[in-house]
Design a binder for these strands. Structure first.
Length: 633
DNA sequence: AGGGTATGTCATCCT
DNA sequence: AGAGGATGACATACC
């Protein structure tokens, strides 16, 4: 885990995709696998540090108590008892990230600062906290009923203490997040201080065994390493890392199961946005899941079934109104993964386009330098899981951002770490392990990490015009519409009259994202047709002009021929006139019977048709006079 | 490798 | 004011 260098980084890699694994085994299998690994739970992130801290300090009881409290709280029962006066866990070197420095390698240590400090609690500072988040969340949904349900399951000997912890957690749930976090930190500090050892694992599993959902199906205490084994050394603690992380990560699946509808076309009420209400979801959604240590196809829905079942009783609207719009969108996209033929990469590519003006530009700030080009042969993961590219970890990096987690209006809330280049290799490594674990990938396959990832915008647009497989036969907008479950075809969207279009938009409950996409589809479709018409028209104009040119050239040739013929006729006429002149003058005689010199005389026709023989001098002067008269006129 | 073509898309103007 | 048409410009895939 530490080698992957991504306990926080995985928050960047959206863990939801894993739950989309169609091959996910039933929940009982997870627990069996957990048991096979000999570890009841897997702490993650900060709890790793705490656990390690406790183990390193030789305080097995502390770790024991921590695990017990965490597990107990995960059942909705109770966590560790809380006493007053505690300070933040970060104080005095209690920073869970700092505490990791001992057992964890330097690479991981370097990544710790990248995680926003404010998110330490959200990021699941400790396993108990994460489970408490779950508890708080579903308690927030229905406080009293869950509380009572939990109480019924608590054994009598633990009832008082559990009740107290429940009350504490209830208070936490009712408090503002910051206050709850502070309280959690206080509790965590008590874990560190070893003051909270009110529960043992035996107590925990006695409690859990009472769960009707058989949460601990097939698990006996003998299968579970006791604190002694935990304190055996770092290997044991590392083992705890693994499986606790798995367990906690399943909360994402829980919320998907609760919130996601196959055809979610909800009209969101922007006024219902509450940043506080989303915090638990943020925590849950942003959980880092270490792939290497994640059980294949694990599904803890059953593990959290009390919460699940309870929340299922709520309407989607009830839940949605409590969700931040961004979270909803994210979940909305998440639900796509539950659909057949869902291609997460399609979604990521479709929505991760910087040029989209429909709000689908999932990662406009995407650092191109941190993107890796996926091999053209298929960067697309067709395994049906979001963000889990099988053969190209680089593309998965992109996909993870683009698919579900990709739509991050506020990435900082969902990603634990920044997306700096320095973290990129670690990220790749993480994904590499992740994929290998989840989908039996080929980690040894040559990676294209050195290749620049094609910017998903233009290239993908164009590429979509030339589909490579059947799914790609859909246009980009068709794929988008399919991905967002838009209940209309692209042709309908583009072709329907504007009145019908507007009424359709108002008639259906569509998310802003869907409406925006529909409008974009319509605009693009219209413009596409307009562009085609424009080009056709332009081509027609060009062809018409070419025809005109040909016609004019032909006409020019004809006119040239006519001109030549006319010139020829004129010349013939001139010749005839000349001959006639000479014929006439050869016959003319003056008063003395001498021939008239045609050089000195000219023939002139009068208006009455008579012909006069005029000396050329007079003809020239007469022409001058007529010319002058013409000028005067 | 470079040029030409086809196509989608965007920006902008106009109706 | 908004929808849509028209079109230049750009990017990209393909030949």
């Amino acid at each position: 885990f530490s080698a992957s260098g991504g306990w926080g980084r995985a928050g960047h890699l959206h863990p939801k995709g894993r739950e989309l694994d169609p091959a996910a085994p039933p929940e009982g299998q997870l627990l069996r696998e957990v048991r096979a690994l000999g570890v009841p739970f897997v702490p993650r992130t900060s709890v790793d540090a705490w656990l390690v801290h406790s183990v390193a300090a030789g305080s097995a009881d502390e770790a024991h108590g921590l695990l017990g409290a965490a597990a107990a709280s995960s059942t909705g029962g109770a966590g560790a008892s809380v006493d007053g006066g505690s300070q933040a866990v970060q104080g005095g070197g209690g920073d869970p990230r700092a505490a990791r420095s001992g057992p964890l390698d330097a690479g991981e240590e370097e990544k710790a600062p990248a995680e926003p400090t404010a998110q330490v609690p959200d990021a699941g500072g400790c396993a108990s906290e994460e489970n408490e988040v779950l508890t708080e969340k579903h308690e927030a949904v229905d406080h009293s009923s869950q509380h009572e349900e939990n109480e019924e399951r608590v054994s009598a000997q633990k009832e008082n203490s559990l009740q107290q912890n429940n009350d504490d957690e209830n208070k936490i749930a009712e408090k503002p997040d910051c206050e709850a976090e502070k309280t959690t930190e206080c509790r965590n500090e008590r874990h560190l201080n070893g003051t909270d050892t009110s529960f043992s694992l035996e107590d925990l599993f006695q409690l859990l065994s009472s769960q009707p959902e058989n949460l601990l199906e097939g698990i006996s205490l003998g299968d579970i390493p006791l604190p002694g084994s935990i304190s055996d050394g770092m290997n044991s603690s590392a083992h705890y890392h693994v499986n606790f992380s798995q367990a906690i990560s399943q909360d994402v699946n829980l919320h998907e199961a609760i919130l996601l509808c196959p055809n979610n076309t909800f009209r969101r009420d922007p006024t219902a946005r509450t940043s506080q209400s989303q915090e638990p979801f943020l925590q849950l959604n942003s959980h880092t899941t270490n792939p290497e240590q994640t059980l294949p196809g694990t599904n803890l829905t059953g593990f959290l079934s009390p919460v699940d079942n309870h929340m299922r009783n709520l309407t989607s609207q009830d839940l949605l109104y409590d969700l931040d719009i961004n979270i909803f969108d994210e979940i909305n996209l998440m639900s796509l993964a539950t659909e057949d033929n869902f291609d997460p990469i399609d979604v990521s590519q479709l929505f991760d386009e910087p040029d989209s003006d429909s709000g689908l530009s999932l990662d406009s700030s995407h650092n191109s330098t941190s993107v890796i080009k996926s091999n053209s042969s298929h960067s697309v993961c067709d395994d049906g899981a979001i963000g889990y590219c099988t053969d190209h970890e680089s593309s998965s990096h992109h996909d993870l951002e683009g698919a579900v987690g990709g739509y991050h209006p506020e990435p900082s809330k969902l990603c634990h770490l920044d997306q700096s280049d320095s973290d990129f290799h670690g990220d790749l490594t993480f994904q590499h392990v992740f994929h290998n674990h989840t989908y039996h990938l080929q980690p040894s396959a040559p990676e294209s990490t050195s290749e620049p990832f094609p910017w998903p915008g233009k290239s993908q647009k164009i590429r979509s015009r030339y589909p490579e497989d059947t799914d790609r036969n859909l246009s980009r907008d068709e794929q988008r519409a399919k991905a967002l479950h838009i209940p209309f075809s692209v042709d309908e969207i583009v072709g329907m009259p504007v009145d019908s279009f507007n009424s359709m938009l108002s008639r259906y409950y569509l998310t802003d994202l869907q409406v925006s996409l529909i409008r974009d589809i319509r605009r693009r479709g219209k413009n596409k047709v307009a562009a085609q018409n424009c080009r056709k028209r332009k081509l027609d104009i060009i062809l018409n002009l070419e025809d005109d040119v040909c016609n004019l050239q032909a006409k020019k040739e004809t006119l040239k021929r006519e001109q030549a013929q006319c010139n020829k006729a004129i010349n013939i006429m001139k010749q005839k006139l000349h001959d006639l002149y000479h014929d006439i003058f050869s016959r003319l005689r003056d008063d003395q019977g001498r021939p008239v010199n045609p050089n000195h005389y000219a023939l002139q026709c009068t208006h009455d048709g008579s012909i006069l023989i005029v000396p050329k001098e007079l003809v020239a002067s007469g022409h001058k006079k007529e010319t002058q008269k013409g000028k005067r006129k």
